[in-house]
Nucleic acid binder design. Sequence first.
DNA 1: AGCATGTGTTTTACTTGTAAACATTTTTGT
DNA 2: ACAAAAATGTTTACAAGTAAAACACATGCT
Lengths: 182, 182
Amino acid sequence: MTGTDGRPTTTQDARRNDTVAAVVRQWQTVHPDLDTGPMEIIGRVNRCAALLQQAEDAPLRRAGLSRPEFDLLGALRRTGHELTPGELARETFSSGAAVTKRLKALTERGLVERRGDARDRRVAHVRLTDTGRDLVDGILPEQLAYETSVLSGIDPTQRDELASLLAGLLGRLEGLAGVLRP
Amino acid sequence: MTGTDGRPTTTQDARRNDTVAAVVRQWQTVHPDLDTGPMEIIGRVNRCAALLQQAEDAPLRRAGLSRPEFDLLGALRRTGHELTPGELARETFSSGAAVTKRLKALTERGLVERRGDARDRRVAHVRLTDTGRDLVDGILPEQLAYETSVLSGIDPTQRDELASLLAGLLGRLEGLAGVLRP
DNA sequence: AGCATGTGTTTTACTTGTAAACATTTTTGT
DNA sequence: ACAAAAATGTTTACAAGTAAAACACATGCT
């Protein structure tokens, strides 16, 4: 089945039925001369991210963790070794000050430990405690299961296509960020 | 040109070269049994949104506006009529309390005005001042021009495909939100 | 009319992030 | 070797969001 413009309508005209489409139509009537094309992508990326964060935090809340905290623990878990606060900040894309605060809270809860560096006494090395590791390993499958259920409405071919296109966009954005921040 | 698995490589194997791909690979080596497929989409959506917010706010900062403030003004501009605080909250996907604070700041800056309702004296009606309208109309083209330049690296066919796939995902997320919030 | 209940908005207390300043230590240049 | 510069991490002051309660008014029931 195809629409009058020949574009396939396998997603039941999703492009005409979400909130972003409505917003774009409003702008079009007020500023018919403006090219609103970028909104169709960027508006949707932003809105998807907002909704995902709302819903996705459910398994984390149960464990009493915020997502930024989980990201920090996850960085330690997936790299498999100790990281310094600075490395954690880069790895989780957050500021050093924010990492300092999170580390304080997570240390008090016994999820991470710190150790000074012998050579360079400015730096600390942070590692997961056993409790912290078990917590991450317990939450991650739930998180992925939830994410899988969210994506289950999209057929595998389209999922793959979407992942590739997003990778292209992300690569471009990260390239830009690298260029724009010398 | 196609990769060894037959998938086209028009985006120069973007899927293997962004930060999310590296994270997924790390998880795979630590938990080889886990299905990390969802991360390829959801991780990228989140990361794209984060980068877009950092970079995209440039034209807004120049005008001394935060993005949530611009969203509020934009909602008034694109609907073309007055909105109540509650409607603004729904329209901009934020809490009523946040809207109250933003309205206070924007009113003090002379960008919006309030007017009481004659029938129902609980509600207020908010409208853009001429200054506010001019500000939105001045910023929007800059914003769209920047967004266009970000997306210019992706060819039009892929842009269209990406917009459609995101619309499908967003529709599903918004449907879920509706169902999960009775 | 009088009171319970619902709705729209604001206020309050609190959480969390950021930017800028700071302290400490290392590196660099001469 | 030593002063200046850079790097690392923390502290401080502040901005902005949220949840829950408070507030103000409207509506419906008896």
